[in-house]
Design a protein around this nucleic acid. Structure first.
Length: 480
DNA sequence: ACCTATGATTACCT
DNA sequence: AGGTAATCATAGGT
């Protein structure tokens, strides 16, 4: 940066007299004029440089040529290169001393244009090498991380399959229901491949630009090395600087690609951000289980696995669902009344059907099948809890009494029969079967929920063990 | 735009 | 480890 002042100083200290023929002056300078005479020569040369733009192209070209053909040129060039190498190394070491370099007077007088250009280049090299030294190592680890991530996301990996594999992995991680969000995944894949494409075209573009620029700079430097002290080593260094520069740009590209992928991922696959409702079937299965095990809605690990399989969701999702359900049911039982009715009835119907089928083989009719049929008529026909409550409560109550009573106690009651008991009992509890004088909400107070809000199994001793449903258990003759 | 439903997460408890 | 309660953040309906 101190180039300008230096030049200005020299300029000011010397007269403006113009002299032709640079080589001659150089020769004169070489002649070893000391003191004022030498200064005068330098001033003359400088003046010529300053006015070089005023000269015609041919004239300048001729001088350049003459300079290149100077007999001392190769030797001088080598010396300059050497000094420069050394100076660059020094300047890197003592980077904050922006030392104005002191050249041997002989060299100064020999080739001012060379010295000047050398100084300029020296300056730029200093800057570049400092920068280069600073950016040397740190990005490596980060670059590797980015590369790994891009590879993992299928952006930088092999052409096909990588993306979908990543999507599938992400889908598995998010635990979403398969059929439901497959469309979404294709959308995700499409967007991912879009990112991938952009990434690759950009990468290619950068690479090409890097190569082009490198060749350009190399040519330029080679060209300039005829007039400036540029050694092949320096060209090499310059090239590596350029490559570093471009690879830092590449890293930026990689970084932003990673960001884009992350955003895409979070938008499409992050379970929490993009919450997907379970599909209707899954919800029904879960609700069915919940309401048929209302006295103890805590599915065992096995039951959870089974439910998870049935609903094509994960076990932890099942756990979440039951956790949420329990708490929300307990908090506002009234709100769930209708739902409870519905599922209670449905479960009863299912059980009745199963039981009817089972008994058709062996015995004519069973009390619980009758009960289920009674249950059926209410909520499903007119779909209203109110009318359901009023119409058949008596029958239901009787049926359940008998089911839960002695007649079924000793028999090999199947697990699903227990479900029916829970379900029907629940229906009864809201229809006023257990308590007459209460309001709807109070009536609905579920059996099993104690004063503290916890579920108790006191009312249904048999449901302490979570029943595992199996057709086999019903199959056995439960009638007599 | 608002509201409710709902799946997930969190802190805390047993 | 598994439960509860509170909370978050979004889906989906109006």
């Amino acid at each position: 940066m101190d180039e300008q002042p230096r030049m200005m100083h020299s300029h000011a200290g010397v007269g403006m007299a113009g002299h032709p023929g640079l080589p001659q002056h150089m020769q004169e300078g070489t002649g070893g004029a000391d003191g004022d005479g030498r200064k005068q020569d330098i001033g003359d040369i400088l003046q010529q440089i300053m006015t070089i733009t005023d000269q015609s192209l041919d004239e300048a070209q001729a001088r350049k040529h003459a300079l290149n053909c100077h007999r001392m040129k190769p030797a001088l060039f080598n010396v300059l290169c050497e000094i420069k190498e050394k100076t660059v190394a020094d300047s890197v070491l003592t980077s904050n001393q922006s030392g104005s370099l002191t050249l041997p007077p002989a060299i100064c007088s020999l080739s001012l244009p060379l010295v000047l250009s050398f100084s300029l280049l020296e300056e730029e090299m200093k800057v570049l090498s400092i920068r280069g030294a600073q950016e040397e190592e740190p990005p490596d680890a980060q670059l590797m991380r980015l590369d790994n991530m891009l590879l993992a996301e299928g952006v930088s990996g092999p052409e096909k399959g990588g993306g979908s594999a990543a999507a599938a992995a992400a889908a598995a991680a998010s635990g979403g229901a398969g059929a439901d969000n497959s469309a979404e995944h294709s959308d995700y894949r499409a967007k991912l491949s879009q990112i991938r494409q952009i990434y690759h075209t950009e990468l290619e573009k950068y690479e090409q630009a890097c190569n082009e620029f490198t060749t350009h700079v190399m040519n330029l430097l080679r060209e300039q090395s005829r007039t400036r002290p540029i050694s092949p080593k320096e060209i090499e260094r310059m090239v590596s600087i350029i490559h570093r520069k471009f690879s830092s740009i590449q890293m930026q590209l990689k970084q932003s690609t990673c960001e884009a992928v992350m955003i895409l991922r979070s938008r499409f696959l992050d379970a929490r951000r993009k919450r997907r409702n379970f599909n209707k079937q899954a919800t029904e299965i879960l609700n069915e289980y919940f309401y048929s095990h209302l006295s103890n809605p805590y599915p065992s690990e096995e039951a959870k696995e089974e439910l998870a399989k049935k609903c094509s969701i994960t076990v932890s999702q099942v756990s979440n669902w039951f956790g949420n359900k329990r708490i929300r049911y307990k908090k506002n039982i009234g709100k769930f009344q209708e739902e409870a009715n519905m599922y209670a009835a449905r479960t009863a119907v299912n059980a009745a059907n199963v039981s009817a089928h089972g008994s058709q083989a062996n015995s004519p009719s069973t009390p619980n099948s009758a009960a289920a049929k009674v249950t059926l008529s209410g909520p499903i026909d007119n779909g209203s809890a109110g009318s359901f409550n009023m119409s058949n409560s008596g029958d239901l109550f009787m049926s359940v009494q008998s089911m839960n009573g002695d007649s079924y106690q000793g028999a090999q009651v199947g697990a699903n029969v227990q479900s029916q008991v829970d379900t029907l009992r629940h229906v009864i509890s809201q229809t006023g079967g257990y308590s007459d004088g209460l309001t709807a909400n109070q009536m609905y107070s579920p059996q099993g929920i104690n004063a503290n809000g916890g579920w108790q199994d006191a009312t249904t001793p048999s449901s302490v063990t979570s029943p595992t449903e199996g057709p086999g258990s019903v199959h056995s003759d439960t009638s007599n």
